[in-house]
Design a protein around this nucleic acid. Structure first.
Length: 571
DNA sequence: TACTTACTAAACAATA
DNA sequence: CTATTGTTTAGTAAGT
């Protein structure tokens, strides 16, 4: 029926109308979520370091190193910190979810975000981790936090996990006590400041409009970011991101658990085993909060302009992020129907997909397109496409035979993928027009919106702008961490921008008109055209040529990372 | 129900 | 000969 994971625009409306969540609150959620994202990433890095250290230390232990005990205690300290972080994340998220399920939130009430304010600031965390991981483990460190050797989690925690299990009770009012703390960046949302308003800038993803005074900002907020398809879509995507982060969180916790178990750290660890389940409880919680609201979520997609503005229908519903989404071998179509720009999703969930073996909810065609568009020259060899898949999605590090076959199949099958032969072989390009063509979306709804959609090629740009913005805000290094030191993000962004800008004037805004006086193309670019019976007038020009003609041999830094860890996928 | 799209599997040809 | 790359066909699931 409906894919549980997302909320329909209708739902959004319901929610907003009933003031279950004010836009501000949603935005808050969004912010929280972004912070979470950041932390998640840091967590991951931390893990990495930890694992390395762990390894080293295990070796040392085997060799009967004398420092052993010291090291181990430090190690434990590290774990402790780790655990804390996880718990904080969890708690924070719990909060978010609760808020989503909260019906009693006053529209104008400011949300405390206290979990964020308390020790959750990335900077602080980083500092913490630096302390823990950096210095090769001095006891003094532990002194700062706790003098214990084992994992005493109770003391140093800036955020005592107090209401860890109270969530049930928090259902109603909870927010009431806002433990604020000055100095934190994220919390002080006094009634006159707005979470979406910072430093004179509208912080709505992708907006960044500047305002002198708060009033004009509010005006802007209501005008530009009113409840419309776009906002709804942005919100929806965000919800998904949140869900996936939850998943990731669960995984991380599991990992932590395993690590601890491995080290035989019993200690005062709060609740070892049941942890991974918290996620579930979170979900159920948010679900149960508003009694019996059906977990609707929708098959709608960000690019579906159809329904969003139809109000009414069902009773007050709530955003129900029924996570635990099917990760299985299922065929999920999700958003592809009207599909397209997976970029936004990928953008923000990249970290997630890169590490979690979750099947990305995009069609092969979308993914392939994305891969190609991300490449500097908008063309990739089959193998490069493979590499992109394995690089970007943990999921595709398995069952290579299957998905590779699917990739080839898609390449061959869809007209939107054009094979171009050059000297060194063949590369695949995307015929954007074809790609757009192949999903007839029935557009209905407000004409204005429709127009908007047309001009922007759907929500892709809008959403991606949002995500780019949020990523930028969070300073998420994204790709830079991996060996992808290349312009992935940038190219993604620019690809999107191109979509946006060049959509109408379909000239080859394709980046490089940069073959001014270059020698004639070395080899004829054979373009194998897929059976194209008719529509000769459709694209008057050899469109495919447009996309590929800018192939500049001397501009090849694409390969660098492609080949770097090229053969990771030999399965 | 009929039609369409997407995924998977697999056969097969061409090529490296 | 083997592996890779492409093309096709077929069956299934799911959405419209």
């Amino acid at each position: 029926m409906m894919t549980p994971q997302v909320i329909t625009p209708q739902q959004m409306q319901q929610i907003l109308q009933h003031q279950v969540l004010s836009p501000q609150q949603l935005q808050l959620l969004l912010q929280q979520q972004q912070a979470l994202m950041l932390q998640q990433q840091q967590l991951q890095e931390f893990y990495k370091k930890q694992q390395e250290q762990l390894h080293l230390q295990l070796i040392q232990q085997q060799h009967g190193s004398k420092q052993q005990s010291k090291e181990v205690s430090a190690q434990q300290l590290a774990f402790q910190q780790q655990l804390l972080q996880v718990q904080q994340l969890q708690q924070q998220h719990l909060l978010s979810l609760q808020r989503q399920g909260l019906l009693s939130i006053q529209p104008n009430q400011t949300l405390p975000l206290h979990s964020l304010t308390q020790g959750m600031i990335p900077a602080e965390l980083q500092q913490l981790w630096k302390e823990v991981t950096n210095s090769h483990v001095k006891e003094e460190n532990s002194a700062t936090n706790n003098g214990h050797r084992g994992l005493d989690l109770s003391s140093p925690s800036p955020v005592p996990l107090k209401n860890h299990n109270q969530h049930g009770s928090t259902n109603g009012q909870y927010i009431s006590h806002s433990l604020k703390r000055e100095g934190s960046v994220l919390d002080d949302h006094s009634p006159h400041s707005h979470p979406l308003y910072g430093h004179g800038v509208c912080k709505w993803p992708g907006c960044e409009a500047v305002f002198d005074d708060f009033q004009s900002f509010l005006k802007h907020l209501n005008n530009e970011h009113a409840l419309d398809d776009r906002s709804t879509a942005q919100c929806r995507v965000q919800m998904q991101v949140v869900q996936q982060l939850e998943l990731q969180l669960a995984k991380d916790k599991e990992r932590l658990q395993a690590m601890m178990t491995h080290l035989h750290v019993k200690s005062t660890e709060p609740k070892p085993t049941p942890q991974p389940l918290n996620l579930v409880s979170n979900v159920t919680l948010s679900k149960t909060a508003p009694e019996a609201s059906p977990p609707l979520s929708l098959p709608q997609t960000p690019t579906t302009p159809t329904a969003p503005l139809t109000p009414l229908s069902q009773t007050h519903s709530v955003i129900t992020p029924t996570s635990l989404h099917s990760v299985g071998p299922m065929r999920r179509r999700y958003s592809d129907k009207y599909n397209m720009p997976i970029s936004p999703d990928i953008g923000q969930n990249k970290e997630f997909y890169m590490n979690a073996e979750v099947r990305p909810p995009f069609t092969y065609a979308s993914l392939i397109r994305q891969a190609i568009l991300e490449s500097p020259e908008k063309q990739l060899t089959l193998n490069e496409i493979y590499n992109w898949f394995t690089r970007m999605f943990a999921y595709f590090r398995r069952n290579a035979a299957t998905w590779k076959n699917a990739v080839r199949h898609n390449l061959s099958l869809h007209k939107c993928f054009v094979r171009v032969e050059n000297v060194k072989g063949a590369v695949w390009t995307v015929d954007e027009l074809e790609f757009q063509k192949r999903r007839p979306q029935k557009i209905s709804g407000s004409p204005a919106l429709v127009k908007n959609i047309h001009t922007t090629l759907g929500y892709g740009p809008a959403l991606s702008a949002a995500f780019q913005a949020s990523m930028a805000e969070n300073n998420i290094p994204l790709y830079t961490t991996a060996s992808i030191g290349s312009p992935t993000l940038n190219s993604l962004a620019s690809a999107i921008r191109e979509e946006m800008n060049g959509a109408m004037d379909h000239g080859n805004s394709n980046g490089s008109d940069s073959s001014p006086g270059r020698s004639p193309l070395p080899a004829m670019h054979h373009i194998s055209v897929k059976e194209e019976p008719l529509d000769p007038e459709e694209h008057e020009g050899p469109l495919s040529l447009v996309t590929t003609a800018n192939h500049s041999p001397d501009f090849d830094h694409n390969r660098d990372y492609e080949d770097d860890h090229g053969n990771e996928d030999m399965l």
